[in-house]
Design a protein around this nucleic acid. Structure first.
Lengths: 220, 220
DNA sequence: GGAATAGTGTCTCTGAGACAATATCTA
DNA sequence: TAGATATTGTCTCAGAGACACTATTCC
């Protein structure tokens, strides 16, 4: 080493989390209002600085806990945003993360519904600072890909469930209606039916299914 | 701000680059021997610490220039490796990058051919330190996906080229032979033939093609 | 002509999507 | 019974892959 280790310049490293959930018939992302400059009062994604000895994923969980009071599930890294002028306070790299949790775990949070790929925050604010709109877009793409590849990778459904339940979930994630028959055929290989039927519903009762452990969907 | 900005702990941030090229009939990755502890003498990927005011992509280009004397092309971010014990010198986050360049730009470099998804470095060394084997694997996946989605995203071929040239390239990236007829049909939509023919070859001369600007392949 | 490579026609198989028929429940 | 929803059969279409045939050059 030609210099003392401590002499080297180091950037600040933050994590920002797009916490997605299924609200009604579409995806939504949890936002909160910034308390600190330079974005005080603006709606944005929860985030925090990485602490000493902490994993990025753990920092993401801490951000969710401290900023919006939610216990996350399994945050996944998306990518690093490193524009030099992202933050007026100095050079801050942000490692963007996604997480996808059930709606009942974000009760009381402010949800920004996704309208045409952009998060629709309260009030007149159009865009979120710190490239957070880009993070949301990447997060949604990740969620859509995950639900094309697997039946319920985020465990959003309670077992057992009907195919109608599963289809509603997938349609919400995909952001578009899914054909009933094609959808059924695309997922049945990764499910196994319990003999039981749903009760208390109108019309012919649906069979209840469980996920086959380790099975994936073959195609989207 | 409840504390002085400079009081906050910051990690060191490095970039490591998997510089891929097509060597003969398969992919290879450029490696070099570490000069510094704790990995001195071991083969690994070129990397460096992020400097003040520098973009991650620029740090990746600088690593290639300084460590292996190569001008990179367009490094892309893969993901951050953040295991706390990655580096004995302290907490170092590494932002892994990929780049894919023509073989004539890495002449004189040590190439580690890819055998079964792992880089085969010289000597008896089996694994690379700092999770660099994982980076290579992610880099190869990226390259394969890129060449499934587009005709020649890294501009590895000189125009005009024959379909045989293009197929050799794709087979090398994919790591498996590709059927002649199916391959042709999968790429012709994104190409346009010049009327000209290749000259000085054995057998029926092949038509020369150019990429249609902005066109992608529809499927892999 | 013979070897070698380029380019194309065609058959099969598989999966997506559309449509509609049948099945089984509640009110 | 009517209404609602679940489940399945079947048709069509498109693309991947396999195979083989035709085309055009050099020797």
């Amino acid at each position: 080493m030609d210099r003392n280790w401590d002499d080297w310049w180091r950037p600040s490293v933050a994590v920002d989390v797009a916490l997605l959930t299924v609200a009604g018939e579409s995806l939504a992302v949890v936002v909160h209002q910034a308390t600190q400059e330079p974005a005080a009062g603006k709606w944005l994604l929860p985030g925090t600085f990485l602490h000493e000895g902490e994993l990025l994923a753990d920092a993401a969980l801490r951000a969710l806990r401290d900023k919006i009071g939610v216990s996350g599930h399994t945050p996944r890294q998306l990518r690093v945003f490193d524009a030099p002028d992202r933050d007026d306070r100095g050079r801050v790299l942000s490692v963007a993360h996604v997480d996808l949790v059930r709606a009942d775990r974000v009760e009381g949070c402010t949800l920004a519904p996704l309208v045409g790929g952009r998060a629709h925050v309260p009030g007149r604010q159009r865009r979120m600072p710190y490239e957070h709109d880009d993070i949301v877009q990447t997060a949604v793409s990740w969620a859509r890909q995950a639900y094309e590849d697997a039946v319920d990778p985020a465990d959003l459904l309670d077992e057992p469930f009907t195919l109608a339940d599963l289809r509603r979930l997938h349609a919400a994630v995909a952001g578009e209606p899914l054909p009933k028959d094609t959808f059924r055929r695309s997922v049945t290989a990764a499910l196994h039916g319990t003999g039981e039927l749903a009760r208390g519903t109108v019309g012919r009762p649906a069979e209840l299914f469980r996920k086959t452990p380790g099975a994936r969907r073959e195609r989207g």
